[in-house]
Design a protein around this nucleic acid. Sequence first.
DNA 1: TGCAACACTGACTGACCAGTCAATCGGGAG
DNA 2: CTCCCGATTGACTGGTCAGTCAGTGTTGCA
Lengths: 207, 207
Amino acid sequence: MTTAATEKRRVILDAAVRVFARQGFHTCRVSDIADEAGVAYGLVYHYFSSKEQILDTLFLERWDVMLQAIAEADASGRPPRQKLYAIASFIIDSYRHDPELMKVIIVEVTRAANTFGLTHLEKIRDAYAGIAAIVARAQDDGEFRSEITPEFAAQAFYGAVEQVLTGWIFDSVTVGQPDLDRAKSMIVETICSGLERHARTAPDESD
Amino acid sequence: MTTAATEKRRVILDAAVRVFARQGFHTCRVSDIADEAGVAYGLVYHYFSSKEQILDTLFLERWDVMLQAIAEADASGRPPRQKLYAIASFIIDSYRHDPELMKVIIVEVTRAANTFGLTHLEKIRDAYAGIAAIVARAQDDGEFRSEITPEFAAQAFYGAVEQVLTGWIFDSVTVGQPDLDRAKSMIVETICSGLERHARTAPDESD
DNA sequence: TGCAACACTGACTGACCAGTCAATCGGGAG
DNA sequence: CTCCCGATTGACTGGTCAGTCAGTGTTGCA
């Protein structure tokens, strides 16, 4: 079953990631994917019913893992700041592990919601909803203040993460592990400090 | 000179906004724009050298106004929170004034940076740089803490604004003035509280 | 050894569409 | 009234490409 046969499917998917990342979904040809994968043109249509379905598959594969990561973060009994850190970590580590795939997902699906993402709007909203749920619970527990709606907080958090990734994607600078770690901290630090109740006195005040 | 003749150019641009917003840049045909504008196909090429140049024009027209708004906010001697509020206000008011144009700019240019936005990457970066400058100055003045780099702060701020707009764009719910105002406050409140030094214990200061 | 059943090939087609261009219109100057 | 030139028209062309399909290789089972 999962022999050389089915693995061709994987080869095509991986080739598609590289081609989509390099040329963009709209600009590339199906023959580019076939060439990159080293298979005949027709084989692509043996495994996938259309060019779009390839992108579809790539997105769903990864997004479902992310939804799971969000759910796990929520389920863990840890403080909200750590939950959000886990999510930021997951997304940024996904980028480190496969920047091309993340580029495709962000540029061609998440942000290209017009043409393509409308199909996946539901899934994308699920992610926001998961993050919002974490915020809502933190508010109930009195750890986050309630002036900011959970839905908005989720958008701000996810927007910040995505914007940072987008910066890396297009600035075409190679980012190292320290950059990734620093980004995680700064995202969580900024957003969570913005969401937490300000009751606690500052660590320092004098200049 | 700015008579009926040159105004046809405007008519075509306005039609293009509607068509791009409805169908997307890649999916629409030049003939769709001509039809929407009520002019002959060929006239589009009398005023513009290509389909892309139309999008180009729309983006630059608006983006330059925004860069100016950012520069003005920076130049005003007001506290950083108010500067950022002015910028968030400008962007959100732009959306209220012409949602279709903002949709086109965000979806087809800013976020579609792969295919198209690379041309405008410089301009887009200018906006981040302007916001970062405001943050940097606030840090020098001791109003914002220095743990967060200005570049990151700018990304988080702009990312939050764009994500909120994107939500409106695709949720296809009509947003009223109160929603817009609430969004402005929440963006500035979240991000600025995250950036400010935590010295103050005050639970309230303005409504 | 034979024969399904499936993997794989790549030339071909039909549709689509950006951009061209030769022809017509219209209005102002002489 | 005539000439000129820019505005305007829309049929046409050349190229592109997603998806099809008829055929060839390969595997594994009886």
